[in-house]
Design a binder for these strands. Structure first.
Length: 88
DNA sequence: GTTGAGCGTT
């Protein structure tokens, strides 16, 4: 399952997110979106986990929680073709 | 700061 992580602090890195989600399950891939034009973080990223149940568990545990001083938004991704469900 | 990018073998 691909998890969307938004409103994260610019200080948050891929390893930071990976460690956070690894507590709830094994993480297959972690990615933070960086603007190609500015080279800065866009403030959101994606985390891919093997088991959906662990992913949802991590979502419920980390969503709307303060990380690095920022209230992060964690939810299952609902766009692109990386989601478990088709896009309308 | 709210739903990507990958640029060459993932």
């Amino acid at each position: 399952m691909t998890i969307y992580v938004g409103n994260i602090a610019y200080t948050m890195t891929i390893e930071d997110l990976k460690q956070l989600f690894l507590v709830y399950g094994n993480v297959t891939d972690v990615k933070i979106i960086v603007d190609k034009q500015t080279g800065k973080s866009k403030g959101y990223g994606f985390v891919e986990m093997e088991r959906d149940e662990e992913a949802e568990n991590a979502i419920r545990a980390l969503n709307d929680t303060q990380v690095n001083g920022r209230n992060v938004k964690v939810n299952n991704a609902h766009r692109k073709n990386t989601s478990a469900a088709p896009q309308e």
